[in-house]
Simulated scan of single mutants.
Amino acid sequence: MSELASTDLHGRRILVAEDEYMIAQEIVDALSDVGATILGPVSRLKDAIRLLTMENRIDGALLDVNLSNEAIWPVVDALQARAVPLVLATGYDTSAIPAAYAGLPRCEKPATGQDLARTLAKVITDVTRG
């Protein structure tokens, strides 16, 4: 893991929404290795929404675009309303992403947990530096 990810994710509360167990575990391991606190992982949209309502502080999010055949967009909207930096993880072609979300940071699957953590660290750094 890069020094950037280690520094910028340490102590951060990161929401993880991923419906494939092995990928979710790889993300959790990568984030834990740099000292992040993991919120989740959740594998269903309703669980992600419930977590959003329960958590006052979310510092970032790694989101699979499709959770058990449900689109993640309501969660993305809620996170954006709270100005939470996020990264989408998807195996879908860019054309499958609705226009409203096309400009969001994204990692193409297959991506490692470390790739996702590095991308999120960069997004958080860019946001905090303004």
Rank of each mutant, 00 (worst) to 15 (best):
M1L: 11
S2D: 07
L4D: 00
S6Q: 12
T7H: 03
D8K: 08
D8A: 00
D8F: 00
L9G: 02
L9N: 02
H10K: 12
R13K: 12
R13F: 13
R13W: 10
I14W: 04
I14Y: 14
L15T: 06
D19M: 07
D19L: 02
I23H: 09
I23D: 08
A24Q: 08
Q25E: 15
S32T: 12
V34D: 02
V34N: 03
G35C: 12
G35L: 02
T37Q: 14
L39T: 06
P41M: 05
V42C: 06
V42M: 06
S43R: 10
S43C: 13
S43E: 15
L45G: 08
K46G: 12
A48P: 10
I49M: 15
L52Q: 05
L52W: 13
T53M: 13
E55R: 14
E55C: 12
E55K: 11
N56F: 11
N56T: 15
R57F: 06
R57Q: 15
I58A: 05
I58M: 05
D59T: 02
D59E: 07
A61Y: 04
L62Y: 04
L63C: 06
D64P: 08
V65Q: 13
V65N: 09
N66K: 15
E70C: 03
A71E: 08
A71I: 05
A71S: 14
V75C: 01
D77M: 03
D77G: 02
A78I: 01
L79T: 05
Q80V: 03
P85C: 10
A89E: 10
Y92S: 10
Y92F: 15
D93Q: 08
D93Y: 06
S95E: 12
A96S: 11
A96F: 12
I97V: 15
I97A: 01
I97R: 09
P98E: 00
Y101T: 03
A102S: 13
G103L: 08
L104E: 00
P105Q: 05
P105L: 00
C107Y: 03
C107E: 11
C107P: 11
C107M: 14
E108P: 06
K109H: 07
K109Q: 06
P110Y: 05
A111Y: 10
T112A: 05
T112G: 13
G113C: 06
L116A: 08
A117L: 09
A117I: 09
R118E: 15
A121T: 02
K122G: 15
I124T: 10
I124Y: 03
T125N: 07
D126W: 09
D126C: 04
V127C: 02
V127E: 07
T128N: 14
T128K: 13
R129A: 12
R129E: 13
